[in-house]
Amino acid sequence: MDDNLEPVAELFKALSSPSRLRLLRLLADGSETVGHLATASGLSQPLVSQHLRTLRSAGLVSVERAGREAHYAIADEHVSHIVDDAVKHALET
């Protein structure tokens, strides 16, 4: 049972940044471009891109290219549930 905890630890590592959590919450409403995410989050475009790379490598977001634009989206609904549940739990204490 405890042999497969490394991927779980990596998931929590990817979720450990408030900026990445903010981006995931923004993506819960639908796919967005880096530019829109930067404006909505108040982060710079390079920083948003860096966070999205981390989230993508963790399998939390997917990307679809349309010409020169990349549209990022939540990989599956489980991701939104994990983030929402964590936020609710943290605010209860």
Rank of each mutant, 00 (worst) to 15 (best):
Asp2Ser: 07
Asn4Asp: 14
Leu5Thr: 08
Ala9Gly: 02
Ala9Pro: 02
Leu11Ile: 09
Leu11Val: 05
Ala14Phe: 07
Leu15Trp: 09
Ser16Asp: 12
Ser16Phe: 07
Ser17Pro: 00
Pro18Leu: 03
Pro18Ser: 01
Ser19Pro: 00
Leu21Gly: 08
Leu21Phe: 02
Leu21Pro: 04
Arg22His: 14
Arg22Asp: 13
Leu24Thr: 02
Leu24Ser: 02
Arg25Met: 15
Arg25Lys: 11
Leu26Pro: 08
Ala28Gln: 13
Ala28Cys: 07
Asp29Trp: 11
Gly30Met: 04
Gly30Leu: 03
Gly35Arg: 14
His36Val: 07
His36Gln: 12
Leu37Cys: 07
Thr39Val: 09
Thr39Gly: 06
Thr39Asn: 10
Ser44Cys: 01
Gln45Cys: 03
Pro46Ile: 00
Leu47Gln: 11
Leu47Cys: 00
Val48Cys: 04
Val48Gly: 05
Ser49His: 11
Gln50Glu: 11
Thr54Phe: 08
Thr54Cys: 02
Ala58Asp: 05
Gly59Met: 06
Gly59Asn: 02
Gly59Arg: 01
Leu60Thr: 05
Leu60Pro: 13
Val61His: 07
Val61Asn: 06
Glu64Ile: 03
Arg65Asn: 06
Ala66Thr: 13
Ala66Gly: 02
Ala70Arg: 15
Ala70Val: 03
Ala73Leu: 04
Ala73Glu: 12
Ile74Met: 04
Ile74Ser: 06
Glu77Ser: 13
His78Ile: 01
Val79Cys: 07
Ser80Leu: 06
His81Thr: 07
Ile82Cys: 05
Ile82Asp: 04
Ile82Val: 15
Asp84Trp: 08
Asp84Thr: 07
Ala86Ser: 12
Lys88Met: 05
His89Tyr: 15
Ala90Asp: 11
Leu91Ser: 14
Glu92His: 10
